[in-house]
Amino acid sequence: MTDPKKTHPSDTDIRPHTFDGIQEFNHRLPNWWLFTLYGAVVFWLCYWSYYQWFHEGPDDRHRIQAELVQVEAAKLAAMASSHLDNASLWAMSRNPVIVASGRKTFEANCTPCHLASLRGRSENKLAIGPDLTVRIWIHGGHPIDLYHTVTQGVPAKGMPTWGPILGPRRITEAVAYVLSHHQEGEPIIDAATLPPGSK
């Protein structure tokens, strides 16, 4: 190849080190490049002072705490917006729209054990789940108990913990569907209050 210019002014400006026979010029970096470097230095100074020196900005712990508070607030808001108590669950069980979507959730998730008729073992001795239409309730005698039973499950007997799977809205609807097979004011007996062996 052709010779590079031998008498360039920079030829005198060669860095002292040599690696594998390679030497380096000591040319100036482009000004725009230096500008980004100095800009980064200024940014670092501001950033570091803001967070580490003056502690003006929130640190990670505070940020996580703030987010946890928000998550908690959202949870509470979701609970408060549905006003879950016995009266509201009864009211929902008379609302055809809620009962219809509750029925969908029930049929997708609950029928393998409780059967589509809700009658479980009363209909078929080999069914897994108990009858949900009778007036003797196994886990508490109030609609809100039913909601908690679905949400938390009865792991010992095989009732799954549906809370994390279905979420509060679909569980509420499914409970409303089950309650639609009952009447508010009907005498519901909590099985735990019955004398043993009287079933």
Binding site: P4, K5, H8, P9, F25, R28, P30
Partner: peptide
């Protein structure tokens, strides 16, 4: 142009 310097960077670092 020469092979020792970048044409678009002047000796003082400014842009050519």
């Amino acid at each position: 142009p020469n092979r020792d310097t970048v044409t678009t960077i002047r000796e003082d670092g400014s842009r050519r």
